[in-house]
Nucleic acid binder design. Structure first.
Lengths: 217, 217
DNA sequence: ATTTTCACCGATAGTACTATCGGTGAAAAT
DNA sequence: ATTTTCACCGATAGTACTATCGGTGAAAAT
């Protein structure tokens, strides 16, 4: 009701944000194939041709979405890891290590869905982004494990760490999606499963490392 | 050079198979968005309009591909489980339980890729098929675990079994894809990781079941 | 031998979308 | 007060694809 008189650049910026928000929603609901300048512009309340005032073409918008989404996800995950480090007990800490990423995914499920889809779609403009994003997350997870004291001495060990990180990440995504689909109502249960999975894998590393300096889990 | 004179129906059947084969290849290379009657017909060596002699529309072809792919995957997996049951030793048996599905995936990677893609793509005609397929595989895996003697008495236990199956399946897919991408050259290493992951999870079940009749792993 | 069937063809109308262009009015600059 | 800028508009040419239609010749049926 209190209509603020917007400057021209403020108004343009608002329109741009409306376009991005509309695009994310359409991407989530209709997929990349359903994302057209017609739909995005209409959902944002402007003419189709005005789309080009804000973006060079659809590819350009997708690039922006990828950056935006990547930034959001990275922020979520960074917070998750920080929170996990600061958590109190040992079991609770370990559980939180998985619970918090699960929650981060569930907070913006469309970002994961869009990434998972693009990851295996050769026609997707977001494919490279999704691939790099998955690699970064996997390698970061592996580095975390190495930092916890698990062996990463030679090529073979490092590859094992990476495979474990990869497997756990995939399981995390699968359980988060199951939760979103209503199959696993309790995220704590899901976190417990992930704790158990990772314990099994880490036991493998410790037992084969020869020296027993691996951390308690 | 010895040209067999084909009957009309034989020739039609060959054309149909060429269309299906071409469609699978295009689907794998260009995604569902790149799958058009123009490309499929051209790749199969017929006129675009002749596509409609064999299929009502693209949707119809996709339905056939889904059935075909599902049949192939089910056959692969059934063989895998049978072979795993018949394998000799205990460790080797357990490793094979995972190695064989990994190999099955790597034999027809396009089927997995197509399924993974469709699974999260709301615009995909194959989405329902992919969802059902994933559910069937997950539930079958969970039933296998239950048959091995792990508790599945109440709702909670059954859900845990399903989550474990879900997580392991996701990890299996992730490692198979990593292998195909050249990151994990040795499938045995990947199988070992999966064995370790599943051991951790199954330990969880046994320890909480109260009774110690769970199988050795 | 004659007729019928049908897999395939080229042409084409219809649909959906992209991206450009000239115009407009209000904000911003002068 | 006047000029310039520019976010947005409607119209439209261009592109890619779908799906139908009438025609053709060889296989199949009679």
């Amino acid at each position: 009701m209190t209509s603020t008189p917007l400057s021209r650049s403020e108004a343009k910026d608002q329109t741009r944000r409306r376009l991005i928000r509309a695009a994310l929603a359409i991407l989530d609901e209709a997929g990349e194939a359903g994302l057209t300048t017609v739909k995005v512009a209409k959902a944002a309340g402007i003419a189709q041709s005005s789309f080009y005032v804000h973006f060079k073409d659809m590819q350009d918008l997708l690039r922006v979405l990828a950056e935006e989404g990547g930034r959001r996800l990275r922020t979520s995950m960074r917070e998750a890891r920080r929170a996990a480090r600061e958590a109190p007990g040992d079991l609770q800490r370990h559980r939180d290590t998985f619970r918090i990423p699960l929650e981060a995914i569930c907070r913006h499920p469309e970002l994961l869905r869009i990434q998972l889809r693009a990851r295996h779609d050769p026609s997707s403009s977001l494919r490279d982004f999704a691939t790099e994003s998955a690699a970064a997350y996997r390698e970061h997870h592996a580095a975390d494990l190495a930092a916890l004291g698990y062996t990463a001495d030679d090529e073979h060990d490092r590859r094992r760490l990476e495979m474990i990180a990869d497997g756990i990440d995939a399981a995390t995504n699968a359980l988060a999606i199951g939760h979103l689909e209503g199959r696993y109502p309790d995220l704590d249960e899901a976190a417990d499963i992930l704790v158990a999975l990772s314990r099994g894998a880490l036991r493998l590393l410790r037992s084969s490392s020869g020296r027993d300096e691996g951390p308690r889990d």
